[in-house]
């Protein structure tokens, strides 16, 4: 894994996921370890994403690395029309690893081909965001104590949500039963369902969130966006059906946990925050440990 870019969640094997999760656990116990003092981490955010950038920069800082880069393409040479290739070639002269987020799909794969240093994809348009996926796996394992034999429910926009697609693909490496809750218009694409079948796993589809409440070990909530509907009336019909409230949690498994990639809008009401099931804020914090594990592994110090 040393010196290898991480562009897509499928770049790693099941064993490699586990290795990252184990290492992340070490960093959770001891987050500050100055093992990257000799390294420079570049964070190139061609589109702003404060949450993801801060998480990476926090991870790098806790390991003692220097961080360079930009948080928005508009105040960099990119706004003067520099090509992605030139930016990557230049920055790879100044850094040991590049974390990048870019609005175009496939940009991170391309960057990994031209870059002299490894790339970590922090989101390429609607395509991949593998560090989000790894932190979700970490959160699932941490709350359930295992990754095998779980009932995982995905709720909301299963059609366009890339987070859901990557997580389903990754969880297909484990003995998972999938519960897919969405409006008819936003069902999980058939190629992802095919992947579940080919992995000899089962999925069940629902339109009613209450149906999965008793069986789920994990409920992964996502946002339903109005612009995904061609007919605004359809949106109005379903928008309140996929909101999780505290009283819906009655009867759920004691150890069930609710995840969400954040930011949320209204799909989880605030009264859920104080229930034992709410895990989405810790989930975000886990991102720092997972990113520490990735930086340390790819830079070859762990």
């Amino acid at each position: 894994m040393k010196n290898r870019s991480l562009v897509s969640i499928t770049d790693y094997t099941k064993e490699e996921y586990i290795r990252i999760l184990d290492l992340a656990e070490e960093f959770e116990k001891q987050p500050t370890q100055k093992i990257l003092e000799d390294f420079v981490v570049a964070t190139l955010f061609f589109e702003p994403s404060t949450r993801t950038r801060l998480s990476f920069e926090s991870a790098a800082s806790r390991l003692g690395a220097k961080v360079i880069g930009f948080s928005d393409a508009s105040n960099s040479s990119v706004s003067k029309g520099e090509s992605l290739k030139d930016t990557i070639l230049t920055v790879s002269n100044y850094s040991d690893i590049i974390v990048m987020r870019h609005p175009r799909e496939g940009s991170a794969r391309f960057a990994s081909e031209v870059s002299g240093v490894p790339i970590i994809n922090a989101g390429d348009g609607g395509n991949q965001h593998p560090t989000q996926c790894l932190l979700d796996l970490y959160s699932i394992r941490k709350t359930q104590g295992k990754l095998d034999g779980l009932n995982v429910a995905f709720v909301g926009d299963l059609k366009y949500g890339r987070t859901v697609h990557s997580n389903v693909m990754a969880m297909c490496n484990f003995d998972t039963t999938f519960h897919l809750v969405s409006p008819i218009e936003l069902k999980l694409p058939s190629y992802v369902k095919m992947h579940i079948k080919n992995s000899n796993l089962q999925y069940h589809q629902y339109t009613d969130l209450s149906e999965v409440m008793k069986v789920a070990d994990i409920i992964y909530m996502t946002r339903i966006q109005k612009e995904r509907f061609s007919d605004p009336i359809e949106y109005e019909k379903v928008k309140n059906a996929y909101i999780l409230t505290a009283n819906m949690l009655e009867g759920c498994k004691e150890n069930m946990r609710v995840l969400h990639p954040l930011p949320r809008v209204n799909e989880i009401t605030e009264d859920v925050d104080s229930t034992p099931q709410a895990y989405y804020f810790q989930q975000a914090l886990n991102g720092v440990y997972v990113r520490q594990a990735l930086l340390a592994t790819i830079l070859g110090v762990k």
């Binding site: 090509s83 992605l84 290739k85 175009r104 799909e105 496939g106 391309f110 348009g125």
Partner: peptide
């Protein structure tokens, strides 16, 4: 076919 693909925006 993807209008947002990097190959449709840069010399790739």
């Amino acid at each position: 076919v993807n209008p947002n693909c990097i190959t449709n925006h840069q010399q790739v």
